[in-house]
């Protein structure tokens, strides 16, 4: 059947492009050395690096409460969760590197403010209850997204997502357990968790991105099976999952306009404030500057450490070489 194909080039040859579309339509996995349209490569680098940046920046709002976690068990669980987020960033950066870009370059884009990351991490964590609600809402939303991505057409991304999904389930459970404990606790704890829900609900809905009508990339990404569902579809799935979970612990979601549509079986939300979303994405959210400052500080203060490790490795290689000579 197949004749041998010439070596891949980066110009979009229409025959190659058609063959690529056919592979995608047939549900095949695209691997790093396969021919791919330049735009596919660029979209993937953008999507994957944004995802990796989000994991790394996401360590900060939760990391903010490690030193104040109110029990040893919670302290240990939270450190393990933040550690997982570092690991997820790592898996996805490595996946992105298969597309021919160095991790150092990707990180520099984030530090320079040239790269985007999930808007949700630009909000502050103001109480211990925020940690529970983040696990419940934010990881819950991420799971909805990532389960779908585990079937993405690009092999390294899909494989990273399978690993991430396995680990993510503990995050949501941990969060919900904290929420349930607080909701069943003292009046002060109940007030704490309801307040956290009030602050995190709408930003969590915005995590799924703009409405389908305002999302220019979606159609192409869906055709290329990099995105499998639209923003609105995923958002609706998340809402339907979460409403009964809130009811179960007697917490109210801060949406007085929410109604249940018996025909579609959907919980329909009131209006999302897209102006807030755009401001946050543009860099004017409550914590954007602080997040980037923290990442830049860690990177700058770590430079001499990274250099030392490289220098030592080079010295060791030179010693081994001269010992062998």
């Amino acid at each position: 059947m197949t004749q041998s194909r010439p070596a891949p080039t980066s110009t979009d040859d229409p025959a190659k492009a058609a063959a690529f579309e056919a592979r995608i339509a047939a549900g095949e996995s695209i691997e790093p050395k396969d021919w791919m349209p330049e735009k596919y490569r660029r979209q993937l680098v953008r999507m994957m690096s944004q995802h990796a940046h989000s994991e790394v920046v996401g360590m900060l709002p939760e990391g903010n409460w490690i030193t104040r976690a109110p029990s040893l068990r919670r302290k240990i669980s939270l450190i393990a969760k933040v550690q997982d987020e570092a690991g997820h960033g790592l898996y996805i950066y490595c996946g992105t590197e298969t597309l021919g870009v160095d991790r150092a370059e990707l990180i520099q884009q984030l530090l320079d403010g040239r790269a985007k990351y999930s808007s949700i991490f630009n909000y502050p964590t103001l109480s211990w209850a925020d940690i529970g609600v983040i696990g419940w809402f934010v990881d819950g939303a991420a799971i909805v997204n990532q389960t779908i991505l585990a079937k993405a057409s690009y092999g390294p991304y899909a494989r990273a997502m399978v690993r991430v999904c396995k680990e993510e389930n503990f995050h949501k459970r941990q969060g919900y357990e904290i929420v349930a404990t607080l909701a069943n606790g003292t009046p002060a704890q109940q007030a704490m968790v309801q307040d956290a829900v009030n602050r995190w609900w709408w930003p969590s809905l915005m995590m799924f991105g703009p409405s389908d009508t305002d999302s220019p990339n979606t159609a192409e990404l869906i055709r290329w099976k990099v995105k499998r569902k639209t923003n609105d579809e995923l958002r609706q799935r998340f809402v339907n999952l979460t409403v009964p979970q809130a009811t179960a612990v007697k917490l109210t979601l801060p949406d007085p306009d929410m109604t249940y549509n018996a025909e579609t079986e959907n919980w329909e939300c009131g209006g999302i404030d897209w102006e807030e979303f755009h401001q946050v994405v543009r860099g004017n959210g409550p914590c954007n500057r602080e997040r980037l400052e923290a990442r830049n500080k860690a990177h700058d203060e770590g430079a001499w450490v990274r250099e030392a490790a490289s220098a030592y490795a080079a010295k060791q290689r030179a010693r081994q070489a001269s010992a062998a000579a």
Partner: peptide, 22 residues
Amino acid sequence: LSEWCGHGPILEEDIATSNVAL
């Protein structure tokens, strides 16, 4: 040690330090 979470010199070391803290 846990004070380093999210502030380590490189991602791999953040993970390593967290492990020791845990």
